[in-house]
């Protein structure tokens, strides 16, 4: 792919300027750590039992710092899929729908090169978000432990490793939505598919087939469905989830190379 550097520079600039990316970054990086700390605090606050506190009951016990990081990992595995899916719908779908993809035809930088640059910039952005979320959660948890006099348990570091891996897997799961946006030529249609995937994931998980469904495996691994469901997720399931990213990248690059009637 000729002139890939130019495509990379352009896509980075577009990423920095994107309203969707800015909003998603702020929500991911600040709301997830704060939400994790808050959810654990609520579950351990001793307030009168309500529907809300009942939902947070699993967070009421266990080492404090470990629980903070685990909750962040659970929320991030879903939030990243939504934020990344929206961003893929925008970065690929908007250009095809608006005709900008057609203007990229016949350039020294091929459309395939542009598509690959979009994928790599997207993954780099989401990787940065994952690292920031985990880092801020660990930092906030350490502060809470220091203030409350609770020891910062070493188990939090292994949970941080789990959160990083689960987050990166979730980031990779967003790549196929670039292909969806390209073939449908519709950002909104892609959002519809994203919502559909989330619904299907919930159904598959409820029916007990979640570990083998790539879009469910990372969340289950973070104990979203409980410790037993997490224990059923092994290396083969995680590798299958990891394979979605390169498959999606190949599909979207090929689709952009073959675009016609622009």
């Amino acid at each position: 792919m000729t002139n890939f550097t130019a495509a990379w520079e352009t896509e980075w600039l577009l990423c920095l300027r994107s309203t969707i990316v800015r909003i998603a970054t702020a929500l991911l990086v600040f709301v997830i750590p704060a939400g994790a700390i808050g959810a654990v605090a609520l579950s351990r606050s001793g307030t009168t039992a309500t529907v809300t506190t009942a939902k947070f009951a699993p967070y009421a016990s266990g080492p404090l710092a470990e629980t903070h990081v685990l909750v962040a990992a659970q929320v991030m595995s879903v939030a990243l899929l939504m934020a990344g899916g929206f961003a893929m719908a925008w970065t690929f779908g908007q250009e095809v729908a608006s005709g900008l993809a057609g203007a990229r035809t016949g350039m020294a930088t091929s459309r395939a090169g542009v598509a690959l640059a979009k994928v790599l910039v997207h993954l780099t952005w989401l990787t940065g978000c994952v690292i920031a979320v985990v880092g801020l959660t660990v930092t906030a948890s350490a502060l809470v432990c220091a203030v409350t006099g609770v020891p910062f348990d070493d188990g939090a570091w292994s949970r941080a490793g789990l959160a990083l891996v689960a987050g990166l897997l979730s980031a990779g799961l967003t790549i196929p939505f670039g292909w969806v946006a390209t073939v449908t030529r519709s950002p909104l249609g892609t959002i519809g598919v994203l919502i559909g995937v989330v619904v299907v994931t919930q159904l598959v998980t409820a029916l007990g087939g979640g570990a083998w469904f790539p879009y469910a495996a990372p969340s289950l691994w973070t104990e979203m469905g409980g410790p037993e469901a997490a224990a059923a997720v092994g290396l083969p399931h995680l590798l299958l989830a990891a394979a979605v990213m390169p498959a999606g990248a190949i599909a979207v690059v090929h689709a952009w190379r073959r675009l016609d009637d622009l």
Binding site: L13, L14, R17, S18, T19, S98, G99, L100, G102, A103, R104, T105, G106
Partner: peptide, 14 residues
């Protein structure tokens, strides 16, 4: 080669 047909090679955010 250069062309302008329908939409320009210009992104609204830039």
């Amino acid at each position: 080669f250069g062309h302008l047909i329908d939409a320009p090679l210009a992104h609204p955010d830039l």
